[in-house]
């Protein structure tokens, strides 16, 4: 007997009608990165219905997803699959089950950066990410090419209201430290 509590939890948070999935595979067929996923989208949806909480929350898929929402607009039952994966990401971090953390790391650095400046100071965010990963020369060639063409912002764009915005963002982030 599946544990419907997990399904209910995800349906409540994501407001997506996951239980109407009849495994037609349209989400998987349209997904541009399905080949890089450990569990393809329609199967992951099925795991939620089956109450496989740990499998769903520890899947690499939710971090491979680029949120392009091809799946969401193609689902014949109107399930916002990309939104479901977003929900799984948040819950997987809360449950300490998250794998493939590069995306998460960059997202946290990104949001922290916004809370500090109000706008993305891309160079600082990318540098912090690289330092964290100890990848010092990863994109040197690409970075130089962009710099030569004037396509990297060298200085931060601080907004006037940044202190207040930062405070509000930290409150909203709750347990997530930004």
């Amino acid at each position: 007997m599946p544990q419907f509590s997990f399904l209910n939890e995800i349906e409540t948070v994501s407001k997506a009608g996951i239980s109407s999935c009849y495994q037609c595979c349209r989400c998987t067929n349209g997904c541009p990165v399905a080949q890089d996923m450990d569990i393809v989208p329609h199967r992951l949806i099925r795991y939620i219905i089956d109450g496989e909480r740990e499998k769903a929350l520890s899947s690499g898929t939710i971090w491979t997803c680029l949120n392009c929402a091809t799946c969401s607009v193609r689902c014949p039952n109107g399930i916002d699959v990309a939104r479901v994966f977003e929900t799984l990401r948040v819950l997987s971090v809360e449950a300490h089950l998250a794998t493939a953390m590069d995306t998460r790391l960059f997202d946290e650095i990104f949001i922290e950066n916004i809370s500090k400046h109000g706008r993305l100071y891309e160079m600082e965010a990318v540098m912090r990410y690289r330092l964290h990963k100890k990848e010092f020369f990863g994109d040197a060639d690409m970075g130089l090419a962009m710099m030569r063409k004037g396509r990297i912002g060298l200085t931060p764009h601080n907004i006037r209201d940044r202190k207040k915005l930062g405070k509000v963002m930290r409150e909203m982030a709750g347990k997530v430290k930004i």
Binding site: N67, V90, D107, E108, I159
Partner: peptide, 12 residues
Amino acid sequence: SCCGASAAPTIN
């Protein structure tokens, strides 16, 4: 200010 792009929904 920044829209949050795809990073914000990952936080909450």
